[in-house]
Simulated assay, not measured.
Amino acid sequence: MSSVSEGRFRSSSVPLITPGHPRTPLRTTLRTTLRTDDGVRIEAVYEPGTAAAGAAAETSFDGTAIVVAHGFTGSAGRPAVRRAAEVLGRRAAVVTFSFRGHGGSGGRSTVGDREVLDLAAAVRWARALGHRRVVTVGFSMGGSVVLRHGALCKGRAGVSAERGGRIEAHEGVHADARADAVVAVSAPARWYYRGTAPMRRLHWVVTRPVGRLVGRYGLRTRIDHNDWDPVPLSPVGAAGLIAPAPLLIVHGDRDPYFPLDHPRMLAEAAGDGAELWLEHGMGHAENAADESLLTRIGDWVAAR
């Protein structure tokens, strides 16, 4: 897939829909279309969140927003994503969106490369709506995207750019796209992994013309036919660059796509900057994340 230069995240085109004080989070559900730095239109939904039963009302309105990044072939409207938004919404406001090539968004999926720009646009929107603190929660492909986004967009240090395998910081870049904490669920550690049957099938869908037709009409996912050039920073390469932002890595011991060496590699790369949860009996990504796990993730977000 074609790779975008990540030396800069410019401001996204966000409709002026925030009357009143910009530091006061909204209390109403909103739907909008965001425009990424490379001009792709992304559908997005904002939900202000509801206080969990028995919890103080301010828990959901403390200025925190959670941006949910779905997995490959998902979208903002899929039931598993809606369930995640509902449970996480008991602890904070929630932004869901559809990656390029998915749902009602434009463009074509680059399977984790340019998607970092989609996430940056969603994070900026959350901040534009008044949220002082934004946490990204990504599943599978979305997990790899939140890891790269966390490494490439680092507040005052700006956004890092990939140049010949090195990471170079650029000053003067917008800090409003940064994540204050990162949660990666069922994320791969390395690219081009084909060690399981589901991943071999996924590679067939992504790399073969017939597979991309199956993706478009069978999985409702439009996939870019270009190879990555250059190959983007790997998730394991990104994991060690996220600190000082807190990082939570969550993975199921029955994940049919990525075995346990993937989360362990990510945690080892992140060192003391990461917390690792290995979930007994859990499968893959948002479809396998039950209410109990999502509640614990929401509690982790609220406590950081």
Rank of each mutant, 00 (worst) to 15 (best):
G107K: 01
G107H: 02
R108C: 01
T110Q: 06
T110H: 09
V111T: 12
G112N: 07
G112S: 08
D113G: 10
V116F: 03
V116A: 03
L117P: 00
D118R: 06
L119M: 08
L119D: 00
L119Q: 03
A120K: 00
A120C: 05
A121W: 01
A121T: 01
A122L: 04
V123G: 01
W125L: 08
W125A: 05
A126F: 06
A126C: 04
R127K: 08
R127W: 02
R127M: 04
R127G: 00
R127L: 02
L129C: 03
G130H: 06
R132C: 02
R132D: 07
R132M: 02
R133V: 04
R133T: 09
R133Q: 03
V137A: 07
G138D: 07
S140Q: 03
M141V: 13
G143S: 09
V146T: 08
V146A: 01
L147W: 08
R148V: 13
G150M: 05
G150E: 06
C153Y: 11
A157F: 12
A157T: 13
A157W: 14
G158F: 04
S160E: 12
A161V: 15
E162G: 09
E162L: 15
R163H: 06
R163F: 09
I167A: 10
E171R: 14
G172K: 12
G172V: 13
V173P: 00
A175E: 12
D176Y: 09
A177Y: 08
A177G: 07
R178W: 06
R178H: 05
A179L: 05
A179F: 03
V182N: 07
V183F: 00
V183C: 09
A184G: 10
P188A: 10
P188Y: 04
A189P: 14
A189L: 14
A189Q: 06
A189E: 08
Y192A: 15
Y192W: 14
Y192R: 14
Y192T: 13
Y193F: 15
R194F: 08
R194N: 11
G195D: 11
G195M: 12
T196M: 03
A197Q: 09
A197I: 14
A197D: 10
P198N: 03
R200K: 12
R200V: 15
R200D: 09
